[in-house]
């Protein structure tokens, strides 16, 4: 039955697009989790939700409204937590809830929930269209090579920002790059698995890999593999069991986390 599902073009598309987005999210996620910025993905996805709702309201292409707005939000969040006036987690909670509030006002003025809005919340990975496939491929083609080139510098900055900055690495540049790439990944990703679930693609693979592996390189490689496994198993399970794909991917990630935790304890 599973093989039969795999022959459907829409399932193939979903697995391709899902894997690309998940790998990007997982790679960036390693740095975000280790720098204690896990909630940024969550905050940004809520901002993206607001931007997309407004985009729909004004009949603009939601993706093109959301990307610049979320990039600006990413800069703001990083600046806020750096200045230390408002603590990072509080800043994110504030921006998240305000965004949802704005989004719901726009939605209600538009005449209430419709399928577009529902899809923004919970994703529609099995219904991706051609432009979304292209967006995901372009994004992965930029982010993955860029990540590999900057890998050593990203490690240095993630492990010890003070040392990196003191010895002459342009830490602001790399932090900005990280924020920018995270923003793009979140916006493209939320279209697939939804606003409410996208942050799991960022945090789960890294946390799971960390249970078992103890070097940075192994954690990064394992995170990328887990990200793909999560999408493939999650989508397959969703087809076989007729459950929502986005939720199925998140639950798969949760199960992998539990298995890795047990392996880590036994080792």
């Amino acid at each position: 039955m599973f093989i039969e599902f795999l022959s459907y073009p829409f399932v193939q598309r979903a697995i391709l697009v899902g894997s690309l987005v998940a790998v990007c999210a997982a790679l960036l996620g390693v740095s975000l989790v280790l720098k204690r910025y896990s909630m940024i993905g969550d905050g940004l996805s809520h901002v993206g939700f607001a931007a997309m709702s407004i985009g729909v309201a004004f009949n603009k292409a939601p993706l093109f409204v959301a990307i610049p707005v979320v990039i600006i939000a990413a800069f703001l969040l990083l600046r806020l937590s750096e200045n230390g006036k408002i603590k990072g987690d509080a800043a994110i909670a504030m921006i998240s809830s305000s965004s949802i509030a704005v989004a719901m006002i726009v939605v209600s003025l538009q005449g209430g929930m419709n399928t577009d809005i529902y899809d923004f919340m919970f994703g529609s990975i099995l219904a991706v269209n051609k432009s979304e496939v292209i967006a995901a491929i372009v994004m992965a083609a930029v982010i993955i090579p860029l990540y590999i080139i900057c890998y050593n510098k990203i490690f240095s900055i993630t492990f010890d920002e003070a040392f990196s900055k003191a010895t002459g690495i342009k830490t602001n540049f790399y932090n900005t790059l990280l924020a920018l790439l995270t923003a793009v990944t979140v916006v493209v990703g939320m279209r697939l698995i939804g606003t409410l679930l996208i942050s799991s693609l960022i945090i789960f693979p890294c946390l799971t890999a960390m249970r078992v592996f103890k070097s940075y390189k192994k954690v990064v490689i394992c995170s990328a593999i887990l990200a793909i496994l999560g999408v493939v198993i999650g989508i397959s399970a969703s087809c076989v069991l007729s459950i929502p794909a986005g939720s199925s991917i998140v639950v798969t990630n949760l199960l992998m986390f539990i298995i890795f935790t047990i392996i880590g304890k036994i080792k």
């Binding site: 990196s164 960390m210 070097s215």
Partner: peptide, 19 residues
């Protein structure tokens, strides 16, 4: 942050050569 950081000793030392 470093208390729970997954990195091998070699990775950490090597990162000093980067700047």
């Amino acid at each position: 942050l470093q208390k729970d950081f997954p990195a091998s000793v070699y990775e950490v030392v090597l990162s000093g050569c980067l700047n």
